[in-house]
Structures are given as C-alpha cells and as structure tokens.
Design a protein around this nucleic acid. Sequence first.
DNA 1: GCGTGATTACTCGGATACAAGATGTCCGAGTTTGAGCGG
DNA 2: CCGCTCAAACTCGGACATCTTGTATCCGAGTAATCACGC
Lengths: 133, 133
Amino acid sequence: MKYSKATNYALHTMLLLVAAASDKPVGVQQLAEKQGVSPTYLSKILTKLVKAGLIESASGANGGYLLKRKKEDISFLDIIHAIEGTTSLFDCTLNHTTDCLIQKVMVEAEQKMEQHLKDQKIVDLVGTLTVSL
Amino acid sequence: MKYSKATNYALHTMLLLVAAASDKPVGVQQLAEKQGVSPTYLSKILTKLVKAGLIESASGANGGYLLKRKKEDISFLDIIHAIEGTTSLFDCTLNHTTDCLIQKVMVEAEQKMEQHLKDQKIVDLVGTLTVSL
DNA sequence: GCGTGATTACTCGGATACAAGATGTCCGAGTTTGAGCGG
DNA sequence: CCGCTCAAACTCGGACATCTTGTATCCGAGTAATCACGC
C-alpha cells in the first residue's frame, strides 16, 4: 500500500506545467530533466494524464505537453485518479451473506482522504514559491 | 495503490476474535475456514498482529490466538498499521532544495483517512449483527 | 490411582515458489517546425 | 521572394526486460494437553 513513483512524477509534472501556464507546449525532456527521470518513461506517465483529459500533447518539433483545463480546476485527486485508477483502495473478496461492514468503514475513510485531495488544487502551491519544483 | 488481501484477512480475523471475546484461544484452522484461506498463510498474517501487540498466541493443543488488549481499545488503524506498516503512503524521492509541498499535501490527506480509521473500533461492528463475519 | 512417557493437536519460523504490478528501456512510426534550395 | 523538399526535433505506442511485492505453500521444530501404560 504505497503511492507509486509514477504518481509522484505526475504531480510534479503538473506543478511544472501549471507554473509555466503558457500556451506553448513544454517538452518532455525538459520536464524529465528537472525530475531526474528518463524522458521515455515520463512520457508513458503523461499519456495517462492525456487520456484523463488533464493535459494535451503537441506533436512535432517544439512539441510537448500543455494544460487542457484551466489551472484552477486541477486538483490533486484528478491527477492521482488518472495514474492510480479510480477503484476503491479496499476490496473485500470474501463472499459475505450481507454487506461487509469492514468494507464500509474503509470506504468512508478513503473518502475522507479523497475529499482533502479534491479540495486541494495544484495552483495553490505555485504562488507560495517561484517554481523551485 | 491497493490495500493487500492480508489486511482484509487481518481485519476480519480481528472481528472474529473480538466477537468471540473469550479467554480461550481460537485456532487458526477455525479462523481460516470461515474466510476461505489457507491456515498456514493466515498464521503468517497473524504473527504480524502478535508482534504489534494486538493479539497473542497460545501454543500446543487447544492453542490458537486471543486478544491481548481490551476489545474497546482496538481500532482499524492499529490493525492496518500492523500489516501495512506505519510509513507514509507517499514518499517524494526527488531531491528538492526545500521541503516538498506536494508531499505535505499528501501527508495531510493521509492523516484525514487515518483519523477516521483511528476513531473506528472493531468492537463497534460486533453489536450490530451477530457475527455473520 | 498416579506418575511417566508417547501421541496428538497445535503454533512458529524459514525457505521456497509463483504471479502480478511497478519501473524502465528500446525502437519504429507518425507529425510538425524550420532551414535550405531552386525557380 | 516564394514555394517545395528534406532533415531535425519532437511525441506516440507497443514490445520487452527487470525488480519488487504480494500471495501462497511446504516442512521441520517447538509446545502443551491428553491419552496410555506400567507400577
């Protein structure tokens, strides 16, 4: 039970893109270099963000990635769901006769966490310091 | 990013032990049978709960496991931490110059979830129905 | 009856096997920009 | 100066390799209760 490194990369990349806040795309190499990860691997992660509709890609020379939504509308939860998936963290596989009370409690707890991640927007972090990553 | 099946087994086993609420130990075979899991595997999980001080084992014939603490003092979080560990769900491995703001948000969110799991005691589930697992 | 040893019913721990997912890498294909060249 | 072509700089997608972790099994060792047996 750990968040994957991919989620970490995705969050930092989004922070960089929000900070850039440009209509010009930012190249993967530039994004990867700042995080010390290989460009090819990072691009794999970013395609998930594209499919989730958070960013879009620009092919060709001077291509790269740029935000698709308004930056105020991008929450932590959006990014995490794009990478980790939206399924519940806890699945009770036992075949109960009734609903699983344990499952119920776990889902409630998860929702508490998600609510916090939903309220927190990426752009909120940008103002405090000038893009030290 | 999923809770392991082991956590599920651990939670259900604790529910069974709390429902039993006896000074007589309950055998692994009995616990395993109700959950449809092999006894040897379940015993591996339960040793983690023993090391965490939640339950204790009784060797020999008529042996098994029984609660060590008062059943009112056993929360979901205790069990989950015993199985999954207590480390944070999110580790920012990037070498920032400053503290990672993303990490900070993630830890806050995690604490929201943990608080709920801490408030919720296993024994609360027992009263509602008579041990349908 | 009453100790004493053997048997039985358990847990405990390590070693091992297997599967799935996370983490990366490599390469070919498609796409856009921009430079260079000829008219 | 204009337009065409071509190379360079990109992203995209699939296939692959590797590593870690979760899941599960097997077996030998230790331990306590109980049974059997002999005195």
